Computed example of a mutant assay.
Amino acid sequence: MAGVTSADVARASGVSRTTVSYVLNGTEGTSISDATRRRVLETAARLGYAPSAAARTLRSGRSDLVLCVLPDWPVGPVIETMLDHLADELAERGLSVLVHHVRGDRPLSELWRAVTPRTVVGLTEFEPDEVLAMRQAGIQVVDTGDAGPDAENPQPHIGRLQVERLVARSRARIGYATTDDPRVVDFADQRLAGVRAVCAERGLPAPVVIPVGVEARSGSAAVATWRQAGVTGVAAYNDEVAFAVLAGARAAGLDVPGDLAVIGVDDVPLAALASPPLTTVTQHIEREASYLAACVLAALDGDDPPPRPHEAPALVERDSA
């Protein structure tokens, strides 16, 4: 039964709303018989009554909601995996996660004032005025957008790993399958910087860079251009782009990795099921989710934030490169 209220429970159990409130809230010092208490609880269970989040907040003085703010990034397997792990770890402390995907110019304050979260955790940096306003409202703020001045940027290292793997497989002409999604072009450019650096260090020609959409037709067009340029190894922005390259190679009748080696990034679940299984670079997304959860819990407990893990991206060896 949807939308069941305490008034519905009171009518169905034949008692006052005050009695229902005392029973459901476990109020002590009331003269309510065990039989009445039992009847109210059984009726509430039968009707499927659950107190609203707002009511729980008013009674306890704090919310059980964690608002997770995502930048305007595409939500694919990597982000979904991270959010799943974050939700699982916080659920062990009785906390629920609400995800807000930043779009447009709507102020974040409109959302947090409406849902009154206990904690706000951001994967992007918040404006100082926004942080101050949330903290003045009694909301714990966990800002993970800034890794700190001593943190090494892992993105160029990812590109380096990709090319070093291709060079180890005797690939001397490298292509780079960048993304056609402007929301993540900064990540792609940083990875490309690592690709270019290794090519220069090894005395190889500059990589042939082509934007590739996540579709077979785009992959086919890119593969045709790379073949004309003599490319024998392709580093892709991520696994989804790599799948498009694999589709293009199949359409061209090429053997992977014999004619064209392909390597992705992220190690999404489907990477192991690709044909051939995709060699890729993992960013340890589960560990990042555990770090975010630990930051939230540390803020709630009044502890110092944990040190950010700096586990370097790692190669996952399979058959495509």
Rank of each mutant, 00 (worst) to 15 (best):
D84W: 09
A7H: 01
L270C: 02
T280G: 08
A44T: 04
V167M: 03
T225K: 14
G203R: 04
E92P: 02
P257W: 00
T18A: 14
T116W: 09
T30N: 06
D84N: 12
M82C: 02
L58F: 14
I263Q: 01
V185F: 01
V198R: 10
G159C: 13
D319V: 09
V9T: 08
G258M: 04
A188H: 12
T124C: 10
V198C: 11
E125N: 05
I139T: 10
A206G: 15
G264W: 05
P149A: 08
T282C: 01
L111H: 04
V245L: 01
G122H: 01
V66G: 05
E152N: 08
P74S: 06
P305I: 07
P211T: 06
V184W: 04
L83Q: 05
N153S: 13
V316Y: 07
R318D: 11
R38W: 03
G48Q: 12
T282L: 00
D239E: 14
A91V: 08
T232G: 06
A197N: 10
A251M: 10
W112L: 01
L270M: 11
V195G: 06
A312P: 03
R135W: 12
G148I: 06
R191D: 12
L65Y: 05
Q228S: 13
V141I: 04
D303S: 13
A114Q: 13
A50K: 14
W226V: 00
G248M: 08
G213R: 07
R118H: 09
D150G: 11
V66A: 06
E130T: 15
E201S: 13
P276F: 11
P205H: 06
Q190W: 10
R59T: 07
V40S: 03
A314F: 08
S13C: 12
N153D: 15
D266Q: 12
A45Y: 00
R46A: 15
D259A: 09
A294F: 03
V78W: 07
A45Q: 07
A272H: 08
A294V: 07
Q162I: 00
V265N: 14
D301E: 15
D181H: 10
G26V: 02
V167E: 00
P156K: 09
V78H: 02
G233T: 03
D319E: 15
A312N: 00
T124D: 04
Q136W: 01
G194I: 06
H284D: 13
S275L: 13
A151R: 11
E164S: 01
V265E: 09
R56S: 14
A299F: 08
T57H: 05
P149W: 03
A294C: 10
L204E: 00
R62Q: 14
A299H: 04
G253M: 05
G302L: 12
G159S: 12
E215A: 13
R38Q: 14
A293S: 13
